[in-house]
Amino acid sequence: MPQTKIAIFGRVFNSSVTPYVNNLINYLVERKVEIIVFDEFYTFLKKESNCPAHFSTFNNNEDLPKDISFMLCLGGDGTMLAAVSLIRDSGIPIAGINFGRLGFLANIPKNEIEEALNQILSGNYGIQERALLSVESTNKTLFEGENFALNDITVFRHDTSSMITIDAKINTELLNSYWADGLIIATPTGSTAYSLSCGGPIIMPGSGNFVITPISPHNLNVRPLVVSENITLRLKIESRTEKFILSCDSKSETLNTDTELTIKKAPFKVRLIRLENDSYFTTLREKLLWGIDVRNY
């Protein structure tokens, strides 16, 4: 039977997390799992934990082995979003251990690591595919080719209190000219993130939709709009500063207003590992505190 090979990706963590990381590494070593670690994170691990110094490393998508069983992300949802740039279209499944706060994506609690890994290494898990968005411009390569987002793609005003105008077309038909602080285009995964805080709806993963959510629109009749994931959205921005900010999950760039954007469904999906007792609606209730009312206690 071939040895299981996994990749580990993470970011700097505080000392309160160190015991959990030590237990994780010890568990994997005892199970004789072959481990390859993101190089920058490995440097930190060797200083802050009892991580052995003989693991292999990787730096980017190009040198990430394609024969690994899955990637294990140590951190919060932001760490999971960053991992998407490494995974890209390789089809490698991702599991996340939550060292952060909410944990919609990185949903394995840090005090249940061993139980969760027992299930994963035994093959007792499911795969949930999540759609992504891609963004392209008319005159430049965006985000050095990492122009896809699992959560959302957003345009913002730049260095001014004045609103911007966002002319939006769906395919070739005019949708609206948004006069607002910005516009969020979110996937179902991202519908519980920034879009939700701006009044957008929650969309169940796999529903085949995206949501377009304005940020502080001047016309209060302009509401979030759920659209088919198969549409192409074209944006042209007008601003007094002749600049605007484009964000793609955790990445951002400042662009000139002569840059028109095309946003559509990415040509690949991310594969999230979900354990047997994992439920999307349970996650919603727990993370959004549904049903919690101080009058009941």
Results as ranks from 00 to 15, higher is better:
210 F>C: 04
281 F>P: 08
256 N>C: 06
33 V>P: 07
241 T>M: 07
84 V>E: 05
141 T>K: 10
168 A>D: 05
189 T>L: 02
132 L>S: 10
147 N>K: 01
130 R>C: 09
288 L>R: 08
90 S>M: 01
147 N>M: 01
288 L>Q: 10
168 A>T: 12
11 R>D: 14
41 F>K: 10
32 K>P: 12
167 D>Q: 14
107 N>A: 13
201 P>T: 07
118 N>H: 13
7 A>H: 06
37 V>A: 00
280 Y>F: 15
133 L>D: 05
286 E>G: 01
147 N>V: 02
179 W>G: 00
294 V>I: 14
244 F>M: 00
16 S>W: 04
131 A>I: 15
293 D>P: 13
181 D>N: 03
277 N>V: 08
173 E>M: 03
114 E>H: 15
40 E>A: 14
256 N>V: 05
145 G>K: 06
222 V>Q: 15
244 F>Q: 03
27 Y>T: 06
92 I>N: 00
21 V>Q: 13
140 K>R: 09
11 R>T: 13
294 V>P: 15
129 E>W: 05
133 L>K: 05
54 H>P: 14
262 T>P: 06
261 L>A: 04
248 C>E: 05
161 S>Y: 14
82 A>Q: 14
70 F>Y: 05
149 A>Y: 02
198 C>I: 09
215 I>E: 08
93 P>L: 04
156 F>Q: 01
281 F>K: 03
45 L>Q: 04
227 V>K: 11
128 Q>Y: 00
132 L>A: 09
139 N>A: 08
232 T>D: 11
216 S>L: 10
257 T>S: 12
230 N>K: 14
110 K>V: 09
63 D>Y: 01
183 L>N: 11
150 L>T: 01
226 V>A: 10
103 G>Q: 08
203 I>Q: 07
13 F>Y: 04
179 W>Y: 09
121 L>S: 04
52 P>I: 06
112 E>S: 13
10 G>L: 04
228 S>C: 03
284 L>R: 08
127 I>V: 11
69 S>A: 09
60 N>V: 02
188 P>G: 07
144 E>R: 14
5 K>C: 03
275 L>T: 03
295 R>P: 04
14 N>D: 15
58 F>N: 10
45 L>G: 05
187 T>N: 09
164 I>R: 12
120 I>A: 01
86 L>T: 00
228 S>W: 05
183 L>M: 02
199 G>N: 09
198 C>L: 11
85 S>E: 09
276 E>Y: 08
166 I>C: 14
7 A>S: 12
223 R>A: 07
131 A>D: 15
71 M>K: 05
229 E>T: 12
193 A>K: 00
195 S>D: 09
113 I>N: 10
131 A>F: 14
85 S>K: 12
49 S>T: 15
236 K>N: 15
8 I>M: 11
133 L>W: 02
210 F>A: 04
295 R>Q: 13
190 G>T: 03
16 S>G: 13
126 G>S: 07
157 R>M: 00
